[in-house]
Design a protein around this nucleic acid. Sequence first.
DNA 1: GCGTTCTTGTCCATATTATGGACAAGACAA
DNA 2: TTGTCTTGTCCATAATATGGACAAGAACGC
Lengths: 266, 266
Amino acid sequence: MDKTNSRKSARSALEPRQGAQAIRRALAVLRILAAGREDGVPLAEVVRTTGLTRPTVHRIVHVLIEEGIVERHGRSGRYAIGNQVPELALARPRPSRLLVAANPSLQRASTEIGDTLFLTVRTGNDTLCVDRRIGIYPIQVLSIEVGARRPLGVSSAGVAILAAMPAPDARKIVAANEKRFAAYRTDVATVLGQVTAARRLGYGMREIGLVQGTKSISTWIKTPDGQPAAAMTVSAVRTRLGPRREQEVVEILLREARSIEQAIHG
Amino acid sequence: MDKTNSRKSARSALEPRQGAQAIRRALAVLRILAAGREDGVPLAEVVRTTGLTRPTVHRIVHVLIEEGIVERHGRSGRYAIGNQVPELALARPRPSRLLVAANPSLQRASTEIGDTLFLTVRTGNDTLCVDRRIGIYPIQVLSIEVGARRPLGVSSAGVAILAAMPAPDARKIVAANEKRFAAYRTDVATVLGQVTAARRLGYGMREIGLVQGTKSISTWIKTPDGQPAAAMTVSAVRTRLGPRREQEVVEILLREARSIEQAIHG
DNA sequence: GCGTTCTTGTCCATATTATGGACAAGACAA
DNA sequence: TTGTCTTGTCCATAATATGGACAAGAACGC
């Protein structure tokens, strides 16, 4: 449509295998639905965020319903990921390599820090929370749950992951997510600014978290090939994360991030 | 290709939404890959079991790789379900309704029976093992693992599920699975015979289990609308399941199957 | 070495397939 | 009523996915 890398048939390195437009579109739809979690997403929003036309989205979604990959919620009419998706997922070993590798680090960091700790992976243009540890401090930020999916850039974890990749790649992803930023009250320029700041600092930070009154700090975790694959985040009420404590927390997070990277290697 | 219900545009009740051949084919491929679990499946086998042409399967599989939905294993070159599938699955609440509903029954039955107990769901034309409980008896049949996926009809659970649905539906599914039966050393006629026997008995049974020297007994579990959705299976070494004990086990399984059906209702 | 039989990967002319503009109907509000 | 949402459908058309044919690589036997 608009991503015409057309011209001839230069099949070179990345991306351009053709002959499957419909399949790619169906997956784009699925990823948007996944962001809606259990509640799902109205058709119109899928249309808006994917940039596809409504007849196309409608057709895709209803075929996926027939196939059991998507479900429609009775009252609301929203579309959500169907139960055949976890069934397909059972084909893979659980828990994942990353979760195994990260487990001891999360354990240690959670004990030391006491605030809520998140492990977030990058998946395509999204961040996805895959683990959460609750600390001993009596006030915990629990609004982000395992399974939460957001466009890369709107959370401190997303900013950290973007900061850890080559700037042009990050810009490309942020641009691709543009249409989805409005729902999180941010925009391309703001996100890029936060990414630059995180790159300078060595970690991601949001003074004003997605949840009112909270502050988040994230360090990135890279795979052996240097690509950021995940982020480790601490969220707490803002007053609990002053400059002094911020440094303490960052030190622990950085230490454990490196430790997880080692563990993935082995 | 061959399932031409063509003629005009009679869009009536079941199945025939068109305009998404490619998506349906991609899903058919994914389901075959899922049956290969972690090891995956060679391209040629996908071609054989789906009945698609090789260029088509090749294209689909490689697009899915680019999208992260499929992975290719280094040495073997086999194709397997990729890590983006469990990531999409996180959008749904875990554990599922069925698992929650079945939990107490599985607990009770496992304690009472002492042999390995399986909960298996129907998904499309497959059975999928979703829970396994190990009993206290020292010899346990552990070869079937959570995530194991088989064509409906080759396991006692599959036979039970087929027996619980209207005969024409069952026949249709068995016919659709024909190409996949050879790998399990069975065929359409044998399966249909076992289904008829199970219907008469009131439960599914295999004197010669998929694993050498074992015997399996399965009862079906129906959803409120009368469709079988799952099966509860006991597997043990054959000598431990003589006619007398078979009756005992069947009684427990039937009781708990009804109990699970109640629990799903509520 | 060479042939045989597997496998996987690629090309491209073709017609089958998916597309999307236009239209319609339902829900809710003013 | 009219207006502004939403979702659903039709069908002529262009673009897409298709698959026959070809190629190359791997494993085996002799």
